[in-house]
């Protein structure tokens, strides 16, 4: 046995089954939140806003909204998925099974990323109910969505291993990623900011990630697509290296 595909599949389907049991909560909350954003930003404020780069404001915020949900949901899904077995003790079985670290990551992160992609598509569909969407590069859009879902699920996995209590699980999504996403151009183009703020904003890595996704929709972003894609791949690389280090050192998983 060189690759334990049954093992990966067992973890994957277990995680998806856990999600299906609470599917209603998992989907309804993000959809409701997104709808509220459309009502407030798209309809109420958007009416008074000019179009951004030739895109009506209501449509302009769709990629940013999808990314915001994708980031936070990937982090919380993946972190919970690996945190909970440690909390409940059932991790013993994963550790004693003939699974390589790559296979464990594949099972958990694969399931979390699947959920995120589904959620992203549901929000896209929700958005399409409110505004007219023309996606310039649908294949890139799908690929980029998958890339972001994988990357943030990987970071979520890391958080789940690092966290010592449920509060810490919420810490990074709430206090780091959500603010950075709001400030990272989810709801505006950074051209709209005063020059000093523009420079400061470019230090925020989320800017590059959101900009890339917006490019797949409208063919333009705050920065070039190649730079965005480079940042996205670098983020994935950092996540992979970090996880590899965790397993190599047994960090927090094994005494």
């Amino acid at each position: 046995m060189s690759f334990n595909r049954h093992g990966v599949w067992a973890i994957y389907t277990f995680e998806m089954a856990r999600w299906r049991r609470t599917l209603w909560q998992s989907l309804v909350a993000p959809v409701l939140t997104t709808t509220l954003y459309f009502v407030v930003f798209g309809a109420a404020i958007g009416e008074r806003m000019d179009s951004v780069d030739g895109v009506p404001y209501g449509a302009f915020i769709v990629p940013g909204l999808i990314m915001l949900t994708l980031f936070t949901q990937s982090l919380s899904n993946a972190s919970f998925g690996i945190y909970f077995p440690q909390f409940s003790g059932t991790i013993y079985e994963i550790l004693s099974a003939p699974l390589s670290s790559l296979e464990i990551v594949l099972g958990y992160v694969g399931a979390a990323a699947t959920k995120s992609v589904i959620l992203g598509l549901v929000i896209l569909a929700t958005g399409a109910c409110f505004v007219e969407l023309n996606i310039a590069h649908p294949v890139w859009m799908a690929a980029y969505l998958l890339l972001m879902a994988l990357t943030f699920s990987l970071f979520g996995f890391i958080i789940g291993i690092w966290a010592r209590n449920f509060e810490q699980l919420q810490f990074v999504p709430m206090l780091v990623v959500t603010p950075l996403t709001f400030l990272g151009g989810a709801f505006y183009s950074i051209d709209m900011l005063p020059p000093a703020w523009q420079t400061a904003t470019l230090a925020n890595p989320i800017v590059y990630l959101i900009s890339g996704f917006r490019w797949t929709f409208y063919g333009s972003g705050d920065v070039g697509f190649a730079l965005s894609l480079g940042c996205a791949l670098a983020a994935l690389g950092i996540g992979l290296a970090w996880v590899w280090w965790i397993f190599r050192t047994g960090y927090r998983l094994k005494q």
């Binding site: 334990n4 049954h6 093992g7």
Partner: peptide, 23 residues
């Protein structure tokens, strides 16, 4: 220690273990 999933069924959790071990 007793470490079990709460919401899984008996059969599902036992089948899960078999898969985990590559069978």
């Amino acid at each position: 220690e007793l470490h079990t999933e709460a919401f899984e069924t008996v059969r599902a959790t036992v089948s899960f273990s078999r898969g985990l071990f590559g069978l």
